[in-house]
Amino acid sequence: MSALADQMAASLGRRKATWEMADPDGAGRAGARWMADAGVVRAVLADDPLVERVGLAAALRAVGIDVLWWPVALGRREILGLEGPGDVCGVTVPALAVAERGTLVLEASPGHGRGIDVTSRHHVALLPADRIVGTLGEALARTYAAGRPTPSAVSLVSGPSRSSDIEKISTLGAHGSLTEHVVIIR
């Protein structure tokens, strides 16, 4: 399991994402510290029991970051960052992750919007190490296993948004988040 976590970390580096390893009781504080350093003023949290368990909301409030839970009661313009603060961070809890490619598997559900990460300028993912699998094939086989209800939407996220459409040079932050920080929880 720790071999997969190490491989995941190495792959995330290749994807221009950042990462850190944390214990369950330190993960909330680690995420909050990273957001404070990035200048985040508001966090939109996936409504997943894990977020509460690692104490993220309390840690965020302690450093003065505004906390909103999904689903947020905001208008579409504010969700898209056209109104309100620009330095928003979406916090996701991946259902799985792919070590070989550094890919996060985000499943849509009532507590986890399709657009939490992509509408925000920053993206922090809380990833329990035991959810990391080796290959994309394994991840998709589990996600769409027979008998399991098919999620309405799954996003495979492999690094921050980028575009090479201007002179074929990769530039970050095209439409989705400019940053991606993964807290791997041991």
Binding site: P110, L156, S164
Partner: peptide, 23 residues
């Protein structure tokens, strides 16, 4: 593009389900 993964792959199985707030 000669990379081992695209940044985003959207896997869409229909419209939003009951209780979902976006989509």
């Amino acid at each position: 593009i000669g990379y081992d993964a695209a940044n985003y792959v959207n896997l869409i199985s229909g419209p939003r389900r009951e209780g979902e707030a976006d989509g």
